[in-house]
């Protein structure tokens, strides 16, 4: 399952839980006060607090090992990308399947975004193109086909037309 779908499912499940919790609480508020008082529930806050903290800490450390920030080691191939109003210039527009490609993304005029989409229209990853700096984005393409690159940072009146493509063989 692609990450976007997983995220969406997680969010839907959380939303259902949240709505259920609010509805249950709402219904409870309509009946006569039970023996459980606010003070009793309040005393359980710490338990809840620890659970939430542990959950978040676990998520935090798991997430750190999956960041897209480029670590040491060499990519199989480097492609230079220059973004400008309103086009991308790539030093190469065809790459081999299975190779680790490093995109070195720079901007000529204003800040742009470099978003890599597969042929099904799923965002595989992105990086910002900021004037003055070079951002490195590493992607390994596992399926041959046409990949589209769209600008993902608002850059002016033709922002939505700023795109190019990459062929993976």
């Amino acid at each position: 399952m692609k990450l976007q779908t997983t995220i969406f499912v997680i969010w839907i499940i959380s939303t259902v839980i949240v709505i259920a919790a609010f509805v249950v609480v709402y219904l409870h508020s309509k009946v006569k006060p039970s023996s459980i008082t606010y003070e009793i529930i309040n005393s359980r806050r710490f338990k809840f607090f620890y659970i939430v903290v542990i959950l978040f800490l676990a998520l935090f450390f798991v997430a750190l090992s999956y960041t897209p920030y480029t670590r040491e080691g060499k990519a199989d191939e480097i492609i230079g990308v220059k973004a400008r109003m309103f086009s991308f210039v790539l030093t190469k527009d065809t790459v081999d399947c299975g190779k680790l490609i490093e995109f070195r993304v720079a901007a000529e005029d204003v800040t742009h975004g470099f978003g890599m989409y597969d042929s099904a229209g799923t965002l595989l990853g992105q990086v910002q193109a900021m004037p003055g700096y070079i951002n490195r984005l590493r992607i390994q393409f596992d399926t041959p086909g046409k990949y589209n690159i769209f600008c993902l940072e608002y850059c002016g009146s033709q922002h939505h037309q700023m795109k190019t493509s990459l062929i993976v063989k």
Partner: peptide, 8 residues
């Protein structure tokens, strides 16, 4: 015209 000389 500008296309492109780097990383080749």
């Amino acid at each position: 015209e500008e296309k492109k000389f780097l990383y080749r």
